[in-house]
């Protein structure tokens, strides 16, 4: 079995969901970005509110409370599971069964931040993420949530003017995908390497070269079919 970076879930419909679970590097940087945003928020609020005397300090305390307990929850529930820091790092929070995180999950995982932060600088949270199979901190374990990498929106980029060329070799799905992937990415790869890759298929498609392979892929992509 090949090692992969995903956590796989089989749905009752027989579909396998592959969630790319996110580990320490991305998560700690996301936390850092959020911390900077919050700090700037405090800074600005503190300056603005000092003109309002005691009412200002009251408001500041309310804001402090909201920042501590609501910042993560509100963003996770209303902004697609991601605080600004997570969004910047391409992360989002999900339930570990692949559904979007809801109020209870988000509230539990963020209340338990108070435990993760012990003994003062996230040591427990760090150890939990470091050693758990799905990179979960204690709050995640309690709430049944995971943090995943947001997959980029994929667009099929077989777009050139080459004429599609039918391929009379039957291909399995993964093989068709390999061919399409070849055509999509050929533009970003060294020409010699592209030729070398195309040559690999010589035993199946005798005399094939990169151009021809791209035309086959074009045909597979089904443009105009």
């Amino acid at each position: 079995m090949l090692l992969d970076s995903t956590h796989n879930i089989a749905t009752p419909e027989g579909i396998e969901l592959r969630l790319p679970v996110a580990g320490l590097a991305a998560r700690s940087l996301a936390w850092l970005i959020d911390a900077i945003i919050k700090f700037l928020g405090f800074f600005v609020a503190a300056i603005a509110l000092q003109f309002l005397g005691t009412a200002g300090s009251g408001l500041f305390l309310i804001g402090l409370f909201a920042m501590f307990w609501l910042y993560n929850v509100l963003f996770e529930v209303f902004a697609g599971g991601a605080t600004p820091g997570k969004k910047a790092m391409g992360l989002k929070v999900m339930n570990s069964n692949g559904t979007p995180v809801g109020w209870s999950g988000s509230v539990i995982r963020n209340l338990l931040r108070a435990v993760d932060v012990l003994p003062g600088c996230y040591l427990l949270g760090f150890l939990s993420v470091f050693f758990s199979a799905r990179f979960q901190r204690l709050g995640d374990l309690a709430a049944g949530t995971i943090v995943v990498h947001r997959l980029p929106e994929r667009l099929v980029a077989v777009r050139d003017d080459s004429k599609p060329l039918p391929l009379n070799v039957p291909l399995a799905i993964d093989e068709q995908q390999a061919l399409l992937s070849f055509a999509e990415r050929a533009g970003g790869i060294n020409d010699d390497r592209v030729a070398e890759l195309a040559e690999l298929l010589d035993p199946i498609i005798p005399g094939v070269d990169a151009e021809q392979l791209k035309r086959h892929a074009h045909w597979l992509a089904g443009v105009g079919r």
Binding site: L2, D4, S5, P20, G23, L24, A25, F135
Partner: peptide, 25 residues
Amino acid sequence: AVTAELRPRSAWEAADLGVRLVRRD
């Protein structure tokens, strides 16, 4: 003979794959 699933990943996901390589051994 490669023993991990290779595909173009986002960079941070790739870093996590590297971490899993360390965990395996």
